[in-house]
Computed example of a mutant assay.
Amino acid sequence: MKALLFIETDGEKALGASCELISAVKALDAEGTAIIVGNRALADTVATFGIPVIFIETATDCDTLTEVLSQIVKQQNPDILLLANTSLAKDIAPRIAGRMDLGFVSDVIGMNKTDGKVIYTRPAYGGTILEHIEVDGTAVVIVRNGTFSKPEAGSNAGVTEKKLEIPASVVRAKIVDTVKDICETVNLEEAEVIVSGGRGLGNVENFKLVEELARVLGGEVGATRPAIEDGWICRTHQVGQSGKIVAPKLYIACGLSGATQHTSGMTGAKYIVAINKDEEAPIFEIADISIIGNVNEILPIMIEEMKKVKAK
């Protein structure tokens, strides 16, 4: 079985979610090759994870990347093209699948090989069920962050530079300038600790307790859609169906009920702590630790106790 992995970068490093794809290939016992565009130094770094790398020196806009990956898929004829669950991947992966008439599976949280065939598992209907999908022919697959572990360094598998002709006609949109809101510096997808708040906190002043606990733990702040709509924090912190899909080591859910619109974005968390005064709250069904009580009374205690632990 042959797999291609698109390793996405931010110009300075390879994204952790993309590097997890290396572990996915090893779990399938497949022959994997990583693809990196635009930064040769990062290609050398990824090769140290024991996977051969194809490096292409070209632009990294969506149109160009779509053409680059389409050409390599045509040349290599892999069984699988794997991408991490990022905004960029969600843009280019369906284009590649549609352009080349390939199978496409998104938000994959599990892959198992049975009788030489790969079965892809993904949540459906807001995460209330899991569906198992088999694809005939080459499949373009987007894998949810945190599904596989980060790879460990191994022997250097080497880098092959490849030159591709990118017709000017394929680039139909060009980024002239970018302006980032200060909120866009938050990186929920890569965070190991996330403290999220919901409407149960009551007001923006109480929501600051969530921010303080996240700061003490060295984590990031998440939020439900109601908290965003009430203006307590900017939209880039939203976790859920219409927000970010996250998979931290620790997820602390504060004053949120556990509606599927939110939990579908955080069920990949390794350990979940939930705080809610309603003992019937759905969030407790998926929590590893359930704390029943007033979140605005419990959070100050947690903050002080965590400070004591950090001070030791």
Results as ranks from 00 to 15, higher is better:
residue 180 K to C: 11
residue 74 K to F: 12
residue 112 N to F: 12
residue 287 A to Y: 02
residue 127 G to W: 11
residue 147 T to S: 14
residue 188 L to M: 09
residue 229 E to R: 01
residue 269 A to L: 11
residue 75 Q to P: 06
residue 162 K to Y: 08
residue 204 V to F: 11
residue 172 R to K: 15
residue 21 L to G: 02
residue 223 A to I: 02
residue 61 D to L: 11
residue 96 I to N: 11
residue 46 V to A: 14
residue 158 G to T: 03
residue 302 M to H: 06
residue 92 I to L: 09
residue 284 F to H: 05
residue 25 V to C: 11
residue 298 I to C: 10
residue 114 T to C: 05
residue 239 V to G: 02
residue 9 T to M: 06
residue 287 A to W: 05
residue 175 I to R: 08
residue 53 V to L: 08
residue 169 S to G: 00
residue 229 E to G: 01
residue 301 I to F: 14
residue 296 N to W: 11
residue 286 I to P: 05
residue 4 L to S: 02
residue 240 G to Y: 01
residue 171 V to N: 09
residue 227 A to I: 03
residue 51 I to M: 13
residue 39 N to E: 15
residue 13 K to A: 15
residue 32 G to F: 07
residue 178 T to N: 10
residue 131 E to N: 13
residue 93 A to Q: 10
residue 144 R to M: 08
residue 84 A to S: 15
residue 257 S to C: 09
residue 184 E to M: 13
residue 76 Q to K: 14
residue 99 R to L: 10
residue 251 Y to C: 00
residue 56 I to T: 08
residue 43 A to G: 04
residue 70 S to R: 01
residue 309 V to I: 15
residue 257 S to G: 05
residue 105 V to T: 05
residue 296 N to H: 08
residue 62 C to R: 03
residue 213 L to D: 01
residue 234 C to L: 14
residue 172 R to H: 04
residue 9 T to V: 06
residue 170 V to Q: 08
residue 98 G to W: 00
residue 122 R to V: 02
residue 83 L to F: 13
residue 91 D to H: 06
residue 281 A to G: 10
residue 109 I to R: 00
residue 211 E to I: 05
residue 168 A to N: 12
residue 93 A to G: 10
residue 145 N to E: 13
residue 302 M to P: 02
residue 62 C to A: 14
residue 116 G to L: 12
residue 62 C to V: 07
residue 3 A to K: 01
residue 86 T to H: 06
residue 16 G to H: 03
residue 195 V to P: 01
residue 281 A to V: 06
residue 36 I to R: 06
residue 188 L to T: 02
residue 152 E to R: 11
residue 24 A to H: 00
residue 220 E to D: 09
residue 205 E to T: 09
residue 17 A to F: 03
residue 33 T to C: 12
residue 312 K to C: 02
residue 122 R to M: 08
residue 7 I to E: 12
residue 193 V to Y: 02
residue 22 I to N: 02
residue 29 D to A: 10
residue 28 L to R: 03
residue 135 V to H: 10
residue 177 D to A: 15
residue 49 F to R: 03
residue 62 C to Y: 11
residue 181 D to L: 11
residue 282 P to H: 12
residue 100 M to G: 04
residue 287 A to G: 03
residue 10 D to N: 15
residue 45 T to I: 09
residue 93 A to D: 10
residue 34 A to R: 09
residue 183 C to H: 12
residue 194 I to V: 08
residue 220 E to A: 14
residue 173 A to V: 06
residue 290 S to P: 05
residue 253 A to I: 00
residue 67 E to R: 09
residue 303 I to F: 07
residue 101 D to V: 07
residue 30 A to H: 04
residue 43 A to I: 04
residue 20 E to V: 00
